[in-house]
Design a protein around this nucleic acid. Structure first.
Lengths: 199, 199
DNA sequence: GTCTATAGCTGGATAGAC
DNA sequence: GTCTATCCAGCTATAGAC
């Protein structure tokens, strides 16, 4: 019996090599530099294979995005299961806001409908998971200490992480420590000092 | 005697038309769609003029970025001069986080050194202005009411604005009202109810 | 699954006429 | 300042051999 979803075609070496190459090129030179020829060269594979595996470039981008999103989703699920779930969620969000790649996808989405739809769907999925979990977590803590609504807290963590990471890209970090302290002071208040760091 | 900086060449109609066209195309189809030929068509001008006025595409992008940055800077200066400077700054930051264009530039900067340097310099300039101003403003208010450091407040406003605007692009807005309320509650605390709205 | 070959297009950039 | 013409490079996508 075959595994339901991971068919041979979906796990082939060339296919994975192409996705990996796409990720690298996007990071190094931006989405516009991702072409079938460059993918082929970087992956050590014939450029025509791009069309064999993905039909067109848009599909390749979408699969690459989903691959990353799935990994992040798993990571967040694990985080929310930790002993200090808010600390773990904060770490997960902050670690995953490696914005170079994210910004490329956002820019791509700006003018490719199919990709925009993927990112939108993925964002909602993440937000739903986070809101649901954080609401339950906060409900379990001393309500007098909790100053934020779940939605506010989740968006605060996401916004700040994303923005700081983006600025770091430009070697700008004035005030960064201060906002981080703001958030972490709150986390200490409700969950105490950070103990373990889940990966 | 000529005007020191705005020479004829810098204010010509064709030149401006090309910059306007670039902005439009970037918004509609992303930076990768900005080519000399498309610019020419959109601006109703010969494509070769791009090279006459800007030497190359990178320069055109940089000038376009600076044009926008200068406008934003002026706007922030005006804001900080308002009767309720924090409210005005918040409005200015939030209005200007029209991220489609910003995200394109960030993505562009990801792999073009000259553009990256421009954005970095511009970010530092903005941050310096904001920090300086907000520090003075907060110092003037009742210190017991002020819960944030200048750096934290400025980064909070910037991060949240940018992130929410980006999500709006994808029609995602869960929790948005809650974070906005969080920030505006603080503003009300220190500056009272928002009165005028400076443009 | 992997490759070659190629059609058809679009791009950056320059030379030089007007 | 504006335009034509042009070189050369790179791209997506497909057809078809192996």
């Amino acid at each position: 019996m075959k595994a339901e979803r991971s068919s041979d075609a979906e796990n082939s070496t060339s296919r994975t090599a192409l996705l990996d190459a796409a990720e690298q090129i996007m990071l190094e030179e931006g989405y516009a530099a991702v072409s079938s020829r460059r993918l082929g060269t970087r992956a050590g594979v014939n450029p025509a294979l791009v069309y064999y595996y993905f039909s067109n470039m848009d599909n390749l981008f979408i699969e690459l995005f989903q691959r990353g999103a799935d990994r992040s989703y798993e990571r967040q699920l694990r985080a929310l299961d930790a002993a200090q779930p808010l600390w773990a969620l904060w770490d997960a969000i902050h670690d995953q806001s490696h914005t170079a790649l994210t910004m490329e996808f956002v820019a791509l989405a700006n003018h490719r409908k199919a990709i925009r739809a993927e990112i939108a769907a993925s964002s909602r999925r993440f937000r739903a998971l986070q809101l649901d979990a954080v609401a339950k977590i906060l409900a379990g803590y001393d309500s007098s200490a909790v100053g934020y609504t779940p939605g506010a807290l989740v968006l605060l963590m996401s916004s700040v992480s994303r923005f700081l990471r983006m600025e770091e890209t430009f070697d700008v970090d004035t005030g960064h420590a201060e906002v981080i302290e703001l958030i972490e002071a709150f986390l200490r208040e409700v969950e105490g000092e950070r103990r373990d760091r889940v990966r």
